[in-house]
Amino acid sequence: MPGASDLANNVADSVPAQTGPEGTKRDFLFIATGAALAVGTAALAWPFVASMAPDAETVAAGAPLEVDLTPIQEGQIITVFWRGKLIFVRNRTDKEVKDSEAVQLSDLIDPAPDSARVKEGHAKWLVVYGNCTHLGCVPIGHSGQYDGWSCPCHGSVFDSAGRVRRGPAPTNLPIPPYAFTSDTKIRIGDEGAGKAVA
């Protein structure tokens, strides 16, 4: 009793192959069908993947956040959340600023001068994301040998400019987009509007 595949083979065998240097009509159909299948699969997969990206509500929750700096004492670190991400705002002491400015760039894992870590004319104020660049733990403030932060999870150490001084963290604590709206107020998420910051 012939099975379905046998029948299919018989049908296929009965069609004379039209071979030529440019290929057969069946080659063309095969490639065209395959291409349509690939495009169709990708088009179908796209909504599934895209639905996993941050949704409109989550994105909208990232409206700029105003932070009043006046209650922050010298040496104090406060934490705020913007887009669900933890941010440290630190009022650095003069000694911390001086020590940080004096560091040789060659001593740094991810070289950046202190001036690149703060806004011009506001060297006291450091604003950085509060998750370690290694695996995302929250480093503990005023600890570690550089008066900055040290991470309890895997031992990374940051200085008072949020620069990584000892691994395994590969990079400095990133700086969120922000701007001074007055001498005592900053708006986080305002600088470079429209630029997505993960």
Partner: peptide, 30 residues
Amino acid sequence: TVITNILAAIPVVGDTIQSLLWGGYSVGSP
């Protein structure tokens, strides 16, 4: 947080994978 940050270490596509897993800018309700 730690495990999803591990995936972010994958070169090129790591950040995208992380964002698709989070469904936000950090570990949260999504």
